[in-house]
């Protein structure tokens, strides 16, 4: 067990454990906070995979943007005086069975596949490489995503106003 391994297990535990609470706990606000921990754990995994830029983006966009947006949604769609900000559940048992079976099936498939992997080498920061790719090979995709974000922005604003 190296430090790397310990760190990986730690982050995997944080991720999966809090993800479990996200989907099981009844209080929506708590659930959202556990989602925060899940995202944080995933950020850690990214760092372990030496994807530094993605990790930062994950923090900024998910934690700073999407999570706050979800919390706002919770606040806007429940009366403040209503303490019971809770979500009901349905079809628990068949879902649990289905999901567990699916999980085992997926894991079995992943493990039984002989992935062609390479020896890991130390990697520098990927920011420069990403930047170069973004404006050369993927410039069209980049532009299109920009347009998509703009359209989503306009669409969301106009839909929410109605």
């Amino acid at each position: 067990m190296t430090v790397y391994d310990i760190t990986f297990y730690l982050f995997a535990l944080i991720t999966l454990g809090s993800a479990f609470f996200v989907v099981t706990i009844r209080n929506i606000v708590y659930s959202a906070f556990f989602l925060l921990f899940t995202l944080f754990g995933i950020t850690g995994l990214y760092v372990l995979l030496s994807a530094d830029f993605i990790a930062i983006v994950q923090l900024v966009v998910y934690v700073g943007g999407i999570l706050v947006l979800l919390l706002f949604g919770v606040m806007l769609t429940h009366k403040i005086t209503n303490v019971q900000i809770k979500s009901g559940t349905l079809q628990i048992i068949p879902s649990a069975i289905a999901v567990i079976v699916l999980a085992f099936a997926l894991i079995k498939i992943f493990l039984s596949t002989n992935w062609k992997t390479f020896q890991l080498t130390a990697q520098n920061s990927s920011v420069q490489g990403l930047g170069v790719l973004l404006v050369n090979q993927y410039s069209v995709v980049f532009e299109l995503l920009g347009i998509l974000l703009l359209i989503a922005l306009i669409g969301a604003a106009s839909m929410a106003r109605r």
């Binding site: 079809q91 999901v99 699916l102 498939i109």
Partner: peptide, 14 residues
């Protein structure tokens, strides 16, 4: 419910 059916079907396909 539909998604649940999808998951079941996925398992069967797998």
């Amino acid at each position: 419910t539909y998604i649940l059916f999808v998951v079941f079907s996925l398992i069967i396909l797998l």
